[in-house]
């Protein structure tokens, strides 16, 4: 692919524009209607991070985290900080230890969504000592978390398709080692 630098650059631009559009769609879907909804920005950020380097994934985590703060009416930067950490961790894991598989992405989404739900529950509800605070968990955070994990499946395939179309498969350290050992 890199033998034609111009084509490579164009494909990279197309890829990032597609990512930006996807993030925008996730944000607007999250802010529409008054029902419990999945936090689409979390799996979107994680799936994109699994295909990119650490710096790019930190940038994606920042943007998605800040948008999540605005959509959920949280303190600006609150979601961004932990999402950056999660995105960089996902990028590093995919670079050194994991292969691009739906199951591994699902497990990572479950961990990150559970972390987000836990932090949200503690800092925005439990810490204030409201009565019946467990209802927030059972009626809002848990359904939203389950929907988020389910929504990560189509997002995984969609982002994978964008990557394949733009010909930007990343060979991770694990694959490099296998190739080195074979030759």
């Amino acid at each position: 692919m890199r033998s034609d630098p111009k084509r490579y650059i164009v494909l990279q631009i197309v890829k990032w524009l597609a990512y930006a559009l996807l993030i925008a769609v996730c944000f607007f879907a999250e802010t529409s209607g008054s029902y419990v909804k999945p936090l689409l920005l979390i799996p979107a950020a994680l799936c994109i991070s699994s295909h990119t380097g650490e710096i790019q994934s930190a940038a994606v985590g920042t943007v998605c985290g800040l948008l999540l703060d605005i959509a959920c009416g949280k303190l600006l930067g609150y979601n961004a900080v932990w999402l950056v950490i999660c995105c960089v961790a996902v990028s590093l894991l995919h670079n050194y230890y994991l292969r691009e598989k739906l199951l591994s992405m699902l497990i990572l989404t479950v961990i990150c969504t559970a972390l987000q739900g836990y932090l949200d529950f503690v800092f925005y509800y439990a810490i204030w000592g409201h009565d019946d605070v467990a209802l927030v968990y059972t009626h809002y955070l848990l359904p939203s978390g389950i929907m988020t994990v389910i929504a990560s499946i189509p997002l995984y395939f969609l982002i994978g398709a964008i990557n394949r179309r733009c010909g930007s498969h990343r060979t991770n350290e694990l694959e490099k080692t296998v190739i080195r050992n074979n030759y």
């Binding site: 999250e30 802010t31 529409s32 209607g33 008054s34 419990v36 909804k37 936090l39 959509a71 959920c72 009416g73 209802l135 927030v136 009626h139 809002y140 955070l141 939203s144």
Partner: peptide, 11 residues
């Protein structure tokens, strides 16, 4: 413009 995402108190 819109309800705050997943807010139990409908902000």
């Amino acid at each position: 413009v819109g309800y705050i995402t997943n807010d139990p108190f409908h902000a």
